[in-house]
């Protein structure tokens, strides 16, 4: 399937900024389930872009903007061809062994409620793969999906307690639960043609990958209660949302910033 993506991020500052430095993880890579045909990052002001990789093997782009500047608009456009696949991921860049992804972080550390949920749902399930599948469905049923972007820095435990989750929250709860069940799990940011945010255009998508020993990494999308297929474009991974976030930035200057995001994911060739 051919999927085109147009992802615009606009920061507007109430006061001019002396400098803006941003880290983008917005460039997908080829793997067994996707080929990137064409990809570009454009900025609407004087800026230097530097491409590199981060520790997880994601493509990173540093963006250095000279001031004074009162807004920055970043347009990421591209196309990928995706393939239906079954079984574990193939051809992904792996710089770290699965065991690292057992490590809980401040955002994913499970509380007693999550632990109890895990033992209740899959305590009796022996097969690791079945355990992950069971958790994914159970979380999908348990968490009411909240559209759009989530408030920053909500932990998995907080989201689980409230019972209402953004895609980001759902992914982090799934990670917390999978790791609590002894399964390495990681955060994936990317795009989905038929995801929950595709109509409101307000955000990209995110999901989870769980490692099953001797088999490999499997995708799980707890906000949709399914496994990712050919409607998904995988972009970046990390231990939690904070280290695989598409865009993080710092600015030098006062005032407040306003953020506007528009994501269009469409089938077929872009116009």
């Amino acid at each position: 399937m051919r999927i085109s993506i147009d992802h615009r991020t606009r920061y507007t500052f109430s006061e001019p900024q002396a400098r803006v430095v941003q880290l983008l993880r917005m460039t997908p890579q080829d793997d067994g389930a996707q080929s990137v045909i064409d990809w570009s990052i454009d900025v609407d002001c004087d800026a230097r872009l530097r491409r590199g990789t981060d520790g997880y093997g994601n493509i990173s782009t540093m963006l250095y903007v000279d001031g004074p500047v009162d807004h920055v608009e970043i347009v990421v456009r591209g196309e990928a061809v995706t393939y239906a696949h079954a079984g574990p991921l193939t051809g992904t860049v792996e710089t770290l062994p699965p065991v690292l992804f057992l490590r809980q972080t401040g955002l994913t550390r499970p509380d007693e409620a999550i632990r109890n949920f895990v033992s209740g749902v899959c305590g009796a399930v022996a097969s690791p793969q079945r355990r992950a599948e069971t958790l994914n469905i159970a979380l999908f049923e348990r968490l009411g999906l909240r559209a759009g972007r989530s408030p920053k820095a909500r932990t998995a435990a907080e989201a689980f307690a409230q019972g209402e989750a953004s895609t980001r929250d759902a992914a982090q709860v799934m990670i917390a639960a999978a790791r609590a069940a002894g399964l390495p799990a990681r955060f994936v940011s990317g795009h989905c043609l038929d995801g929950p945010n595709v109509r409101n255009h307000r955000s990209a998508h995110c999901w989870v990958e769980v490692h099953v020993e001797d088999l490999g990494w499997f995708g799980f999308d707890p906000s949709m209660g399914r496994q990712p297929g050919e409607t998904y474009v995988r972009v970046a991974i990390g231990l939690d949302a904070s280290d695989s976030t598409p865009l993080s930035g710092t600015r030098m200057g006062g005032g407040i910033e306003e953020l506007d995001v528009a994501v269009h994911v469409e089938a077929g060739q872009s116009q």
């Binding site: 990789t53 981060d54 520790g55 997880y56 093997g57 710089t95 770290l96 062994p97 065991v99 690292l100 057992l102 490590r103 231990l239 280290d243």
Partner: peptide, 18 residues
């Protein structure tokens, strides 16, 4: 042990490959 080294908070995935 792999877990002792890699799940150690002092192991920084951010610098893997540097």
């Amino acid at each position: 042990p792999e877990e002792l080294a890699l799940c150690n908070p002092q192991f920084r995935p951010e610098v893997v490959g540097a």
